[in-house]
Amino acid sequence: MALPTRTTPRAPAGRPTSRRPAARHFRLGGIDPATLGVVVLWVSVLVALPIAALLALSLSGGPQGFLAAVTRPSALTTLGLTVALAAAVSLVNAVMGTVIAWVLVRDDFRGKQVLDALIDIPFALPTIVASIVLLSLYGPDSPIGVHLAGLRAGVMLALAFVTLPFVVRAVQPVLRELDTEAEQAAASLGAHGWTIFRRIVWPVLMPAVASGTGLSFARAIGEFGSVVLIGGNLPGRTQVASQYIQQLIEAGDQAGAAAVSVVLLAISFLVLTTLRVTSSRMQQREEAA
């Protein structure tokens, strides 16, 4: 990162020596120690300290207690189910989100603005409202005769509903910036539709799809409100990790609840970090300096 304060050998001689103080005022890369302090304090109060407290609580029964809490059959079942559902929903999002973004950016049709606005609704709604919305159409009194309440399909639907915007909103700006002339150049060189997508468009889109998919996975793995009503909280069938945690708390097992939470947190963190590292590697390759 080249800061203006750097003394470049090519700098013309005889420039005013007042350059250093001026640079201190106009430097964009630097920050004020007070600002840094506020940022650190804020993030600590909001994120770091509560997580540390959670870790401490999860270990209150010692490492054995922690292990016992997370390796209980009921814990393993619900964690496995949650990860599987979240992964499945994220894969669906990766495909559907990309298709939706493509249609919104590349196609022109009546009602496009409406469709674009609809994408954010699941995100804006309180999740419990999302649950009621889905239950009213796919619940026991379904006006169209589709009954998903108490089924894994219902849980997946709820998770897909709340994570709809992530991939769409990550891919849309990248797609908008994409150089359509590169695609035309590929066509003139003999490449057809699918080859153009695979070799020219996808490599540019991939990091955005990955980051959107990662966010939707992280959101899905911890989802609570939207699955409460439609899932029915059936252990081993539709109970997700957040509901299991709530059940533990209600039963007074604070340490066990904290231990399962820590596992959830670790999985999300791992997935997000992996995706960030891969996509930044791809970016580096592209802009290799």
Binding site: E181, S188, A191
Partner: peptide, 20 residues
């Protein structure tokens, strides 16, 4: 005939390089 089969080479003002 689609562009793929016209046997033409096309050069764009803004290069249209395949960045990746």
């Amino acid at each position: 005939v689609p562009p793929q089969r016209r046997g033409i080479g096309f050069v764009f003002q803004h290069y249209a390089a395949f960045r990746h």
